[in-house]
Amino acid sequence: MDTIIELKNITYVYGSGTPFQMTALDDVSVKIKAGFITGLIGHTGSGKSTLVQMLNGLLRPHAGQVLLHNKDIWENPKEISSIRFKVGLVMQYPEYQLFDETVGKDIAFGPKNMKLSDEEIARRVEEAASFVGIDKALLDKSPFDLSGGQKRRVAIAGIIAMRPDVLVLDEPAAGLDPRGRKEILGRVRQYQRDTGAAVIIVSHSMEDMAKYCDEIIVMNRARIFAQGSCAEIFARAEELVAVGLDVPQIAYIAQALRRGGCELEGDIYTVEGALSALVSLFEKKGIPRKTANNA
């Protein structure tokens, strides 16, 4: 797979020279693959938000380089806003950035800043709204009249409407109920599958990551702790627990079953995966399907 964004030896320090000095990124190097959903995971304060703000040039690294398509994004600092159209960042709690009179106008803010034609803007607004599941009728409403989950989807549409090469979402599901989480993350995955864009999702929920991501990067204390496929990452359960993270509960159950002598096949870290492994185990042992389903 091609690398779309690469961070090379990035260091970033907040409040340098004050008593509140805080190294948020410490010599971080990482490659993000194109055409994949990459999950960025780590406990609170590990530097995830700082890292994603590097990707679109909202923060300028104190050391190191950010390469987009193998070009340093800070080569020409005056052009940095064009990078922001290529790397679309949905910040944490994006619902608080809505400001315009109508939902449609708010989604159009990004495309308008790109100086697109009116027809193109209208087309993109409609497309982005349908990607996130915002009804056409809502486009003429005030964004302040929407529910929390709807507001957040509108904010995500505002970024999608810029058609970025890379879509970055900082904790898109934080503070939502399970149904809202599923809706948003499902829509994001559908968007990725439809457009083939690279997507980066920041989260601290292992369950969500296991379900929606192709590749996982684990951060710990301003550094990259591990990077790999879900199977590779969740195989290192003990190490993850040691740095204050969790593995999906189903992975624990699978582990316990194996220890109890149950020969489950494959890597299990989602409920669906566990079900199919159990079914195939039952079939192998010749237990009738009906009993298996009841089990």
Binding site: R84, F85, G88, Q97, G110, N113
Partner: peptide, 13 residues
């Protein structure tokens, strides 16, 4: 700061 960053991410100048 946060809101400014969010709007900058949408190309505000």
């Amino acid at each position: 700061d946060r809101i400014m960053n969010a709007q900058k991410a949408r190309g505000a100048d």
